[in-house]
Nucleic acid binder design. Structure first.
Lengths: 247, 247
DNA sequence: CCGTACGAGGGTACTGAGTGTCGAGCGTCG
DNA sequence: CGACGCTCGACACTCAGTACCCTCGTACGG
């Protein structure tokens, strides 16, 4: 068995030579091997030994590249999270805060849209494996924390600043995920960004300043006169809604 | 060693006899033993064998009561989740939907408030153990799904009904958790429900009908006049904020 | 009164994820 | 040419979680 494994390892090295790709060819090989096995026999029916056996590498190397078996399913989220925090750190105070975190959320969508087939495969996998769903939650939670931390900084002066930051971050993530999942359910067909824009527009309509200008929308169609004596924003909104007769 | 274990088991039985409590004395004994060890030597430094050794029961019995080691940290969430779904199922269409899910969220808070010291201990534990944080996320996710499913049913007719349901459920959970955590950080001092009411009021101000009446708040302190020509709600809010000079 | 059926719990052994440690290969630099 | 350092593999180990089987107490029907 060890001789066949050595042969497989040699074949792997040849492949890396002709691929001439980025820095970690071994990492990609592990992801490819893992997904082949996950798709043909299921996640829980596949052991790490199976994966490294197919990839022709040592078991220890798997855990060098991926802290856990779940991580191989989300190989690019670490980089995407770094991109998001970098994006939020750059150009701190220029844009409207809510719009800024919406743009940050679009970064995640773009990552999914880069490899539609891979994203759809992963979606089907995570949908039916409870352990992967739980892991995905922790990934999403880190995105949400990044957005919330950014908003907390921007809302530093406000009353209930951290509350608003947490709520808006959660709403943005939920809207993004709603649109993302509906796109994934359609096998990656159609334009993902349009769905997400619509969903994020809803969140922006509920919080803070309005969304980015929408075509065909004239600002003059709203005229507001407010008499105010120290009322909180939610009271104002409540009155507006009552006046407009909405529920 | 087996004799001392048998002695411990006998002591356990005596305790249950005098406690005369509910059905599972063994379950409570396991929780108590687990938390004693978690607090004095840490979660990850405590093995399941340590717990069952202290509780004087067999290892197999631990997994009879708790599907995993993490579950012993959240012993009452299963019941609370059942309570919430039952609450949402009863009295389907009477209350305003957003207010209804806010009330459902208050059920969770009440569970935490029932045992303040236990809740604070657990909070400190989950805050510093990544594995427990991840597990807590999956628990919270189930609450959020319950709320979202309820709202989806109530919003069945609406355009973007599922989107609104998901976003509002996420916002409610985020607001609840924000208030809950701030209460837990204060070691369970102060009135938890007031903090949560305030946080949920913010969410209700952003979505749907306004929050329940707040004491000391006079409706007269807001007077609004709106001239409207088919504008969407977010445009109105935008104008309000601009008028009030908020960002 | 006895045998039996049943349910709760204990014991043993196994699988598989994740870690620590060491040693082999190999390229780089002094 | 040798020392260093980095990458990877081999082995051993811990621990969570599962399957299987055993024991004991109890209730129930003959």
């Amino acid at each position: 068995m060890s001789s066949s494994r050595a042969a497989a390892r040699r074949a792997e090295k040849d492949e890396t030579a002709e691929a001439a790709a980025g820095k970690p060819p071994m990492r990609d090989a592990l992801v490819a091997a893992a997904f082949r096995l996950f798709l043909e026999r299921g996640y829980e029916q596949t052991t790490v030994d199976d994966i490294v056996g197919l990839a022709g590498v040592g078991r220890r190397s798997f855990f060098r590249y991926f802290p856990s078996k779940e991580d191989v399913v989300f190989p690019d989220h670490e980089r995407c999270l770094a991109d998001m925090t970098a994006f939020l750190a750059s150009g701190e105070g220029t844009e409207e805060p809510v719009a800024r975190v919406c743009d940050a959320a679009r970064l995640v969508l773009r990552m999914y849209a880069e490899n539609p087939t891979f994203s759809v495969q992963r979606y089907r996998l995570t949908k039916q494996v409870p352990g992967l769903r739980a892991y995905e939650l922790s990934v999403v939670w880190r995105y949400e924390r990044a957005l919330a931390e950014y908003l907390r900084a921007r809302f530093a002066g406000r009353r209930d600043g951290t509350l608003q930051a947490d709520v808006i971050a959660a709403a943005v993530v939920a809207a993004h995920n709603n649109a993302l999942r509906s796109w994934l359910r359609s096998d990656g067909r159609g334009e993902a960004s349009a769905t997400v824009d619509h969903a994020l527009g809803y969140v922006q309509s509920a919080f803070g300043a309005g969304p980015a200008p929408v075509v065909g929308e004239e600002p003059e169609d709203v005229v507001v006169v407010v008499s105010r004596r120290g009322a909180p924003l939610w009271r104002v909104v409540q009155e507006i809604e009552t006046t407009l007769g909405r529920d």
